[in-house]
């Protein structure tokens, strides 16, 4: 009896335990279901993010395309307005540029000669010196020398163009004038030279990359045949790296054409159609600075001329950049 009583109590206890257990189980079951639902919800959310991200990224990536579209659209739209007033033929063959006179004339040839001449001067400086630096760094210099000189050349490349402009105007021009007094205070020669110095690091480093890419086995072959280092460089390395070297030159020209501050400061704003490098000449870029800085009222002919000149400049540099890429792809020697 006692035992049964005890049994009864135990049974009751067990039953009670079972009940609480099943309660617990029930609770747990609910919990798991909740958790699964929650997990699903979370996964849905992360699925949504997962699906949204590519779209968001495409939108961000298309900003760079919008920039191109923006540039081309603004240049074309405003240039078309300009060519309604000034015939396109007159613009590209006119040798007189008098935007501010009573009877304004818009011929772009003075600006084009200024741009071309300053670029030629710059390349006469940067081409040979840049190439020779590249030859020295890639063929002659020891590793240690190369590792000291390259960062210094990078500093030269990192100096803002306005600083070069200051240098051309306050140092190079006075030096040139003390040697050749006939040179004017603002002239195209001095900014051309300084622009060349600015471009040296670019040509040197791009040409050097092209020359370092030539496999050593080719150099060793030439040296083993008894060629000197110089002969190896000119007969083997340079021909093999020619596409890279030419494209570095073309990129240098493109850089010179688009350079603004040096010529704006040191070459003045004379719009004469001349080939005399001792005189002041205006480039396309300097014209844009002068006219836009003078607060040309929107809608005036001179305001539209800004865009026509910029469009010409844009086409010039675009052709150069495409040419550089074409040369380096088309004529690359694969080893």
């Amino acid at each position: 009896m006692l035992s049964s009583c005890c049994d009864f109590y135990t049974l009751k206890g067990v039953l009670h335990k079972m009940a609480t257990n099943s309660d617990l189980n029930k609770k747990n079951a609910v919990n798991v279901r909740d958790m699964i639902a929650e997990k699903k919800k979370k996964r849905n959310f992360s699925n949504v993010t997962e699906k949204m991200i590519p779209t968001i990224l495409i939108i961000i990536a298309s900003i760079s395309i919008l920039t191109t579209v923006g540039i081309i659209y603004t240049l074309l739209a405003e240039s078309i307005e300009f060519f309604k007033i000034v015939p396109i033929w007159e613009f590209f063959t006119g040798t007189v540029l008098k935007p501010l006179s009573q009877n304004p004339e818009f011929g772009i040839l003075p600006l084009i000669t200024g741009t071309v001449i300053s670029s030629i001067i710059a390349m006469l400086v940067a081409g040979p010196i840049g190439l020779m630096s590249a030859i020295y760094l890639s063929e002659y210099a020891s590793d240690k020398v190369r590792r000291t000189i390259k960062p210094l050349l990078e500093i030269l490349a990192g100096i803002p163009t306005i600083v070069y402009g200051f240098f051309a105007f306050t140092f190079v021009t006075p030096v040139i004038r003390s040697i050749f007094p006939a040179v004017e205070a603002t002239n195209i020669l001095s900014p051309g030279i300084v622009m060349g110095v600015m471009i040296i690091p670019m040509i040197a480093s791009l040409s050097e990359d092209a020359m370092t890419a030539v496999p050593n086995s080719m150099r060793e072959g030439a040296l083993a045949l008894g060629a000197t280092k110089l002969e190896t460089t000119f007969r083997v390395v340079i021909p093999a790296a020619l596409s890279g070297i030419i494209s570095s030159f073309v990129l240098g020209i493109s850089r010179a054409i688009g350079e603004t501050m040096i010529v704006t400061i040191a070459s003045g704003s004379s719009k004469n159609f001349t080939f005399d490098i001792t005189q002041s000449m205006q480039t396309m870029t300097a014209y844009i600075v002068e006219v836009s800085g003078g607060d040309a009222p929107a809608g005036s002919t001179i305001y539209y001329s800004l865009y026509a000149v910029a469009l010409t400049l844009f086409v010039f540099t675009l052709i150069m950049n495409l040419l550089a890429r074409y040369v380096s792809r088309k004529f690359r020697e694969e080893y």
């Binding site: 540039i71 990129l251 688009g258 603004t260 870029t285 910029a310 400049l313 844009f314 540099t317 950049n321």
Partner: peptide, 8 residues
């Protein structure tokens, strides 16, 4: 775009 002159 990298080759477009800054003035543009």
């Amino acid at each position: 775009l990298a080759g477009v002159p800054s003035i543009v």
